[in-house]
Amino acid sequence: MSHPADTDQPDAEDRLRVALTGDVDIYAAETLKAQLLDQLLRTRVLELDLAEVSLIDTAGMQILVLLKRTAEREGRELRLSQHSATAAEAIQFLGLGPFFGDPLPIQPQWT
């Protein structure tokens, strides 16, 4: 559940890409909230790479929703990208695809 940024600084176009790894769950929730909010407020676009996410529980999903809403309120943008099968499935399952608005392909092994 470590979540270091790819680079700590936003790029030339004020985008920051952060990779989440492991379980995005209740044990990570407090750290994630503090760290990602801080990163969101330092950049125009925060892109969360979900390729290495192995699990998202309710607490974890709430953090993602919080970030999305905060971004909208602050005139910034949150993008979720490279969803792992688990991450994509969790978002689909909860019907939150339209809320996040990111592309969510069918996974090769989606059953």
């Binding site: 929730a29 407090e30 309710t58 709430q62 953090i63 929703v65 399952f93």
Partner: peptide
């Protein structure tokens, strides 16, 4: 057949407790 997740009750960043359930 369908799940709608309601996020209406999630408070602002400041007031949100990551360990509480709001959905």
């Amino acid at each position: 057949v369908h799940i709608a997740t309601l996020v209406d009750n999630l408070p602002d960043a400041e007031a949100m407790d990551p360990l509480n359930c709001y959905f």
